[in-house]
Design a protein around this nucleic acid. Structure first.
Length: 592
DNA sequence: CGGATTTGACCAGCGC
DNA sequence: GCGCTGGTCAAATCCG
């Protein structure tokens, strides 16, 4: 014979009721805890004590066993909040006074509403008799009719109570475990929060230290296999003769690739890279330290002429260098294969200087943001030495004004790239973690997942030059870079399908990057779709917002793949010079 | 004519 | 200290 909780409670409240208060006390505590789980433990205990005290005061004649029960509850006030069974003993004296009932209930109350209702029904001072059934699923009711001094039945009931109590003990233990988990989670949360705050508040006068550098390039990498031939390396061999003007590059033989790399260097100068000629290799400076990094394996898209016409050939790249505040400001570099003098990033720029940098015959142009007066953002634009069709645009600083839509998308994406890779870098080296903190434009949104998932020396997606193991980073002049090429191989690229290809419209806002009309990232025959990809990349670059989407997707893709990809190469050299297949990121790209 | 670009000069940092 | 290099300035020039 069972009754619904509501029924018996109603009956109990209406009748002359003798209720063992265990349930009520638990009920109160449970409610309390449900309201505010974050109460300090001591505070909570005080409340529990208070409640227990009240209870004792009101119910002096409580069963001894129940008293013990209460004490147990008070020992574990929190555990009771997580859905334990409740033992309830009710001696219900019928309204006519002829019958007494003793009810033992173990219940996982799920009837909060009912509880409230019965609370109201109970009236003043009767709230202790309700609300016990707040969390459970099953309900077991043992009901015994207490006859006049029926000791045998009472004994049975007592046994049942004992069993219930044991069960409760187990539940309490479980609850305790859960509690610990919650506490640990909260602790972790606050730790991360503090870390974030610490990063954001890093003083600007911090000594120069390792400077994480993020490279994310979308589109075609040089046919020479150079991932990031950022021609800024100083004083080393392999200087190339001038290959031509900025406007001359038919884009032949270029690789389509999306690459992402991260590096850390002690100073911006050391980021200077002159990539080797036709093979992936780490560039080592005269001092023997790694100064640059070859891009991963380049996929050769020979015979894939840039279909972008006179404008955008077929490549794009984003390089984000999250610079230590001490070094200056955040640097984000975008590498774009385009024929125009600059790429359209949605902002207005005014050229204020031009200089021929050492090691690269191509002049470097300096631009200043003119969207708002006094905007500190500047950018440098320079042709890539190895592939003149690649335009390397380095942004520096943080805009002090709202950005145009396209620029916003780009900025947020590159910032995300920088942040993401910065986090990676942070995890791979404590020194980077300490010195490479977020600067204004790329705050380090710490994520334990990120922190745990990218290690430069372990991921096949991130190539750390053999000459620059991640452990070298602290204090040295060496620089490290992690690189990811998502379109590393043409054969892989040819199978790519991208979620962002859905939109066929290109909205070519760029003057120098008239987009192609083809669907972005469409596939086709080998040469054909290689060229198509070139077109598509061009299309993306013509539309800053679309470009940012592509970058974001690439990052997401990278992150998603990272876990399994991590298990592969641990050798940076291997990852940068062997098989392009190791850049399995391509395979991880989202399905169409 | 006003704004943008060009270009040589200047300055600061860094390495030898 | 000197030279080299990158970065910036500002006058001259260009262009719509």
């Amino acid at each position: 014979m069972t009754e619904s909780p509501l029924d018996w409670r109603d009956k109990g409240t209406q009748a002359n009721q003798i209720e063992v208060k265990t349930q009520e006390s638990m009920s109160s505590k449970r409610k309390r805890a449900a309201i505010d789980l974050s109460l300090a433990a001591d505070q909570r205990e005080k409340e529990e004590d208070h409640i227990a005290g009240d209870r004792r005061g009101k119910d002096g004649g409580v069963d001894k066993k129940e008293e013990q029960f209460k004490e147990q509850e008070e020992d574990h006030p929190i555990e009771e909040t997580a859905g334990e069974k409740v033992v309830e003993v009710v001696v219900d004296q019928g309204g006519d006074g002829t019958k007494e009932e003793i009810k033992y209930r173990t219940q996982h109350g799920e009837e909060m509403e009912e509880d409230k209702q019965s609370e109201e029904d109970a009236g003043d001072g009767d709230d202790e008799s309700d609300g016990a059934e707040t969390r459970a699923e099953d309900k077991h009711v043992v009901e015994a009719t207490a006859g006049d001094g029926d000791d045998s039945q009472t004994t049975m009931v007592q046994d049942e109570v004992n069993a219930m109590q044991e069960e409760m003990e187990k539940m309490k233990e479980e609850n305790q475990m859960l509690r610990r988990v919650v506490d640990r989670t909260m602790r972790d949360y606050y730790e991360l929060k503090m870390k974030l705050a610490a990063y954001q508040q890093q003083p600007a006068d911090e000594p120069k230290a390792q400077e994480p550098e993020v490279f994310l390039s979308l589109g075609a990498t040089a046919a020479t296999g150079q991932g990031f031939p950022e021609p800024k390396r100083k004083g080393q061999a392999a200087r190339r003769p001038s290959v031509g003007s900025d406007e001359t590059d038919d884009g032949k033989g270029e690789d389509l690739g999306l690459s992402l790399s991260l590096g850390a260097s002690s100073s911006y100068e050391e980021e200077k890279v002159e990539a080797a000629a036709a093979h992936d290799m780490d560039v080592v400076g005269a001092d023997g330290k790694a100064k640059g990094y070859a891009l991963l394996e380049s996929s050769k898209l020979v015979g894939a002429p840039a279909a972008g016409g006179d404008h955008l050939a077929a490549a794009a790249g984003v390089t984000s260098q999250s610079v230590n505040p001490a070094n200056r400001k955040t640097r984000v570099s975008v590498r774009v294969r385009c024929q125009g003098p600059t790429m359209n990033d949605g902002c207005q720029w005014r050229k204020y200087g031009q200089k021929v940098a050492k090691g690269n015959p191509c002049p470097r142009a300096y631009y200043r943001c003119t969207v708002a007066p006094g905007c500190p953002v500047r950018k440098q634009v320079q042709r890539c030495l190895e592939d003149m069709s690649i335009l390397v645009t380095t942004y520096e600083g943080t805009h002090n004004h709202p950005l145009p839509v396209g620029a916003t998308a780009m900025a947020s994406t590159t910032s995300a790239a920088a942040t993401f890779m910065l986090l990676s870098s942070t995890n791979s080296s404590s020194s980077i973690s300490e010195a490479g903190g977020g600067s204004g434009a790329a705050p380090p949104y710490l994520s334990p997942y990120l922190l745990n998932s990218h290690h430069s020396s372990a991921s096949p997606l991130l190539s750390t030059p053999s000459s620059m193991p991640a452990s070298v980073v602290p204090g040295g002049a060496a620089s490290g870079m992690q690189h990811l090429n998502l379109f590393g191989h043409s054969s892989m690229a040819s199978h790519l399908k991208y979620p962002w290809s859905a939109s066929p419209s290109h909205g070519s806002s760029s003057d120098q990057m008239a987009g192609s009309k083809r669907p972005f990232w469409s596939t086709g025959g080998d040469e054909k779709h290689a060229a198509t990809m070139a077109d598509n990349v061009g299309a993306v670059m013509a539309d800053p917002s679309k470009f940012s989407v592509a970058i974001a997707a690439a990052i997401n893709s990278f992150m998603g793949k990272d876990g399994q990809a991590m298990s592969g190469n641990k050798d940076g050299e291997g990852s940068s010079s062997k098989s392009s297949n190791k850049w399995g990121v391509v395979e991880s790209l989202p399905p169409p």
